[in-house]
Design a binder for these strands. Structure first.
Lengths: 359, 359
DNA sequence: GTGAAAGCGCTAACAT
DNA sequence: ATGTTAGCGCTTTCAC
């Protein structure tokens, strides 16, 4: 039924070996005329390599595995899209397996992907098993994107949260604010700690004292942002601006401020983090820092494909920067507004990408 | 390096064939004692079948292809999750390829998936090529989920928009409304036409006259909903309730009503459609009808796997129903509120599933 | 630069 | 019920 190397060999009169060399290794030395003839016939006959056969023989499948906690998590789809785009450009395919935040399921996923011939694995967001024996044994190249807990590890790509948080705070300072509150995420998340550090360091570099009561704990949720903001509003000296470690808490902050009879941004400015989709459609629209998930996916994939080509390697942790997107909650006015913020795809792609080994 | 059938055969003393039969076909008649021994040894040795070899031989890969326009589209991730969950239960894997709404890329995707050994293909949302020669030739089982344009076709799964729209309208009527406006989506979408029909038929079955000026065209976007609502507010006799064909337009409607100095739901009720994530976090929270994408993915996959097992078949179009989720924009009060609406996953799973061959 | 041939790990006839 | 064996389509030595 389907056309194979043998058919092309018969048709052209060359051997299967030659045909294979033309079709599989574009760099193998074959006479130009032969190459052209083979290519031509292969094309007219509609040759499609049987990848099962190829991978059985060569142990390469041009397929990678992607282990995610849940494709429905907010950051996963754009990250996967970044991965896919990079894979596509290199004639690779990706299979996604969900682990549901469950170490057992993650182990299952790894097993599945290893028996299934994949050339490498990308772990997205949470990954419990840095050391899975089977994984180690398989010696497959791997990358970790946006690992949320645990200590930093090699072969990983993370957002530059320190940079992003500093960006947000710097913007508020440039708008004349000096009492800037911060609503943090849960302590055990990297993002929380690093964004807090960015906040703290940026204040410091502007010689603004850090007030402990302006720093509130949060839970990433709307409700946590709301509560934290109520606390801040109850202070003797409330802040004039709030930087929330994510957009959902920023929205909660907006609601709390509004419920206190105040206006955002006139009475209090708010800046979020992540550039989630809803920040563009709520009222007022939320000023935020881009979580460069699309780029992170791309960068991780590039690195993985390099590893696959050159053999598994240890690479430094890569940090990817996101830009500040100025909207309505910070009070910066129309002037600064991003030109193209309606299209999330181009927005992701516009993102400033800076690999920076250390800072 | 990796353990294979031969190793287990040597270890147990049985033949490769016997070992294969135990490990590959759980239903093949093998002595119980032999089976147990093989299973035990396979397990302790950590046997993982080489799927490339298996699929080269048997032409089955336990992998299906999923062609989507863009994994980042709002409905795609939950749909993919439904597909994945069903695949996982049946020891299948899925590879996703993005087509970016481009027929050429879709054709490429099909080619890729065919040379790549996949046992079937699911087309998600838009699919241009009902008739691709290569696809036809390959004779692979296929399913279409939520095809947006073109005439209804076999082997497809769609939302029961007529039912859902009727649900929304019925709810508004039960709340005492009789001047109920409708904001439609673009005319060339199935969803628009069918939701409009549901609206029209439900009014009719309550003996409420259909007023042409209460039906406004829309574009699925915030801005379209906003404009349509301004038109409605300008009417001599404005409606007391608005049913928008999607949540984004419903939000636009809410904003327009608020900008006119009126209150939602006190002065005007609004119901949306789709149950997008943001409907839970905007103010007021939007009452809406669930677009049962998760279930649609599952149902399509079940049907595809049946086809794969039993040979390709033509099946009737399957309609999946979504429930009404009562929140704040309809004015129904606290009583009705969904118990569990904070968790999107369980919300999707709670969805009422009704296959109904015809209606 | 090209061809012959071995064999990747597995399944499925066929044989016993 | 179990074993023997051919061969899936391809890549890759090893010859020439």
């Amino acid at each position: 039924m389907s056309v194979k190397l043998e058919d092309i060999a018969r048709e052209t009169g060359f051997s299967i070996a030659t045909v294979s060399r033309v079709l599989a290794h574009s760099d193998y030395p074959v006479n130009q005329s032969v190459r052209e003839e083979v290519l031509r016939v292969a094309h007219t006959m509609g040759y499609k390599p049987n990848l099962a056969a190829r991978s059985l023989r060569s142990n390469r499948t041009n397929t990678i595995g992607i282990i995610v906690d849940d494709v429905m998590s907010p950051f996963v789809p754009p990250m996967v899209r970044g991965i896919h785009d990079c894979l596509h450009e290199n004639d690779f395919l990706g299979v996604i397996v969900n682990s549901d935040w469950d170490p057992d399921q993650e182990q299952d996923a790894i097993n599945t992907l290893i028996s299934r011939p994949v050339d490498g694995i990308i772990f997205v967001e949470y990954s419990h098993l840095v050391h899975s024996e089977i994984l180690e044994e398989s010696n497959k190249p791997r990358m970790f994107v946006h690992r949320i807990f645990g200590s930093p590890i090699s072969n990983s790509v993370v957002p530059d949260d320190h940079y992003g948080a500093a960006l947000a705070v710097r913007h508020l300072i440039s708008l004349g604010h000096s009492r800037i509150a911060y609503i943090n995420g849960p302590e055990n998340w990297h993002n929380s700690r690093t964004r807090y550090l960015g906040y703290k360091d940026e204040l410091e570099s502007h010689n603004i004292a850090l007030h402990a009561d302006l720093v509130q704990p949060g839970d990433w949720e709307l409700e946590g942002g709301y509560q934290a903001t109520r606390n801040l509003l109850g202070l003797d000296e409330p802040p004039s601006a709030i930087f929330a470690a994510n957009d959902l808490m920023a929205l909660g902050a907006v609601y709390a401020i509004q419920d206190a009879g105040l206006d955002v941004p006139k009475d209090m400015a708010v800046v979020g983090y992540d550039n989630r989709n809803f920040t563009r459609i709520v009222r007022p629209k939320i000023t935020t820092v881009v979580m460069p998930v699309y780029e992170m996916g791309r960068v991780a994939t590039e690195s993985l494909l390099e590893q696959i080509a050159d053999g598994r390697q240890e690479t430094e942790e890569i940090k990817v920067r996101g830009e500040l997107i100025i909207r309505d909650t910070c009070g910066a006015g129309e002037v600064y507004k991003a030109r193209d913020e309606l299209n999330p795809k181009t927005a992701y792609r516009r993102v400033l990408l800076n690999k920076q080994p250390e800072e």
